[in-house]
Design a binder for these strands. Structure first.
Length: 494
RNA sequence: GAGCCGCUAGCUCAGAUGGUAGAGCAACGCCCUUUUAAGGCGUGGGCCCCGGGUUCGAAUCCCGGGCGGCUCACCA
């Protein structure tokens, strides 16, 4: 007999019935002695008869994912953090009263099971329940077993449902965690030290971006969520921590897209007495070794494109890349007017205030950047778009910097650090002028950082790697939201 | 911010040209002790995203709004 009430109400009623039968629907005294994978591994080589003879027992806890009821017996699948296991429940084995209680269990409930491990007719490893207990009643129905949860909005808003239902989603986040672990291992092995620097800064520096603003009441000052840890990490190099890194969140108050989330995870590391060229080699080693571990191959596929991560990766300067992928003439690199005219030809909308270097960068991004599908180091960026980078010894209009591009996207950004305090101060001044001219992303003067440099920073190279984008690449994820557990969305109710 | 697309039962989806809402799974009742998308018989379930408008009549057409996706612009 069906009632004119929702499934939610039906389950709440079951909760009451269970309580009336003397069952606590939310106990916390069950001890799971085993995990699904442990039992699967343990019994891997054992056939039906051998297993029967061993008389192996197991205790498992997990969520009911499937329920097949035969009246006086039932099959369930339960899922724990390690995998799935079938459970066979017989009325004559657990007893009349227990079976009556068991009939109130639903898909989605968390249960504990103890019993003998055996193989069914179809050879599936199964626990024959001697005891079965409710550990947490679920009063919300789970998505359907066959199609699962596909609605993208629900998947992001109720990520727990996505994780319960979609094992491939769970797998992406397992890989994400593993990738970060591997990065730590890689850097620790090379004598880098992990540190934490301020997320709340009074001068948001280290990148060209718009910050989030907040306020500290007791100090009565405005603070900004950091857009990068760079200037603090370099202060630490000055302090004598010659190899430091930080893996943590940056916040940028900008648009949201498949490649941008307002908060995102960044690795930044600094190595004294190294150059940007050393970091290219290090980057090849780090990313290829991680890819090998995560993907078990260096020939990976990203969104239908075949990518070969086998090092070494080609290196090409911004200038050579522009010359190679457009019909630009040499003149644009020395004559701002020519650069401006060429940018117009590429249908780029360049404001008058743009510096020569900025125009060249725009040209590069439009004409050349999308061409670099295979991993490539783009080197020697224009000086005025790199206010924290060291000038090239031979050509002072460019800096010793590289970006790593894969699939036309920036994965890493690195440079030999500017450690001349006078030069740094001048670069900041230039940024301040650009800000005054309307560039809201230009740097703010950081006097304390300049003072720190005045004490002397060893020659150093530093690099930033966008972890989310690296994870996207290595898990073949199309959107950054697929590699961030809780991506930023508008509130459901405005 | 602009353009395109989507929003119908708990989930996955149908609902030409306007006629008052359907399926599968899930749920509920009965049968069933080796099933695995178990099976059989039966039953209930809907603010059709929200608000206006047109019409005798709107899930459907028009206008406005919300949320999401994709593309573009900005960025990492």
């Amino acid at each position: 007999m069906a009632e004119k009430i929702s499934e939610f109400e039906q389950r709440v009623n079951k909760l009451e019935e269970l309580r009336q039968m003397g069952v606590n629907p939310y106990p916390n005294d069950f001890i799971a002695t085993d995990a699904a994978k442990k039992i699967i591994d343990l019994c891997a080589g054992l056939d039906k008869e051998t297993l029967e003879a061993k008389n192996e027992t197991a205790g498992l806890a997990g969520r009911i994912m499937a329920f097949r009821d035969f009246g006086k017996a039932s099959f369930l699948h339960i899922q724990d953090r390690t995998g799935r296991m079938q459970v066979y429940v017989r009325k004559d084995l657990i007893g009349e009263d227990a079976y009556k209680i068991f009939r109130n269990f639903d898909v989605g409930d968390i249960i504990g099971v103890e019993g003998k491990v055996f193989r069914t007719k179809t050879n599936e490893l199964t626990i024959e329940a001697k005891e079965i207990r409710l550990l947490a009643k679920s009063i919300q129905p789970l998505p359907e077993k066959w199609h699962g949860l596909t609605d993208v909005e629900t998947r992001y808003r109720q990520r727990y449902l996505d994780l319960i239902t979609n094992s491939e989603v769970k797998n992406v986040f397992v890989k994400r965690t593993r990738i970060i672990q591997l990065i730590r291992e890689f850097l620790n092995k090379r004598d880098f030290m992990e540190v934490e620097t301020p997320m709340m800064q009074s001068i948001p520096g280290g990148a060209a971006a718009r910050p989030f603003k907040t306020h500290h009441n007791a100090l009565d000052i405005d603070l900004f969520l950091r857009i990068a840890p760079e200037l603090y990490l370099k202060r630490l190099v000055i302090g004598g921590f010659e190899r430091v890194y930080e893996i943590n969140r940056n916040f940028r108050n900008e648009g949201i897209s498949t490649q941008h989330n307002p908060e995102f995870t960044m690795l930044e590391f600094y190595q004294a007495y190294a150059t940007f060229e050393d970091l290219m080699t290090l980057t090849e080693e780090m990313i290829s070794s991680i890819a090998m571990e995560i993907c078990t191959t260096l020939q990976i596929e990203y969104q239908g494109q075949k990518i070969d991560l086998t090092p070494p990766w080609p290196r090409i300067s911004v200038k050579d890349a522009i010359l190679k992928y457009s019909d630009a003439e040499e003149g644009i690199f020395t004559d701002k007017k020519k650069a401006f005219a060429f940018a117009k030809k590429l249908k780029l909308d360049i404001p008058e205030a743009f510096s020569h270097g900025k125009i060249l960068l725009e040209i590069f991004e439009k004409a050349a950047e999308p061409k670099f599908i295979q991993p490539t180091f783009i080197t020697h960026y224009p000086l005025d778009v790199s206010p924290l980078s060291r000038k090239n010894e031979k050509d002072p209009s460019i800096v010793d910097r590289f970006e790593l591009l894969v699939c036309g996207r920036e994965i890493a950004n690195a440079f030999s650090e500017l450690n001349d305090p006078i030069d740094q101060q001048e670069r900041f001044r230039q940024q301040v002028l650009e800000r005054a001219a309307g560039d809201t992303e230009a740097h703010i003067m950081d006097e304390d950082f300049v003072r720190a440099l005045e004490y002397g920073m060893p020659p150093t190279a530093g690099e930033g790697i966008g972890i989310d984008r690296l994870v996207m690449l290595l898990t073949n994820s199309a959107s950054i939201r697929d590699v961030i557990l809780f991506p930023q969305l508008r509130p459901e109710k405005a």
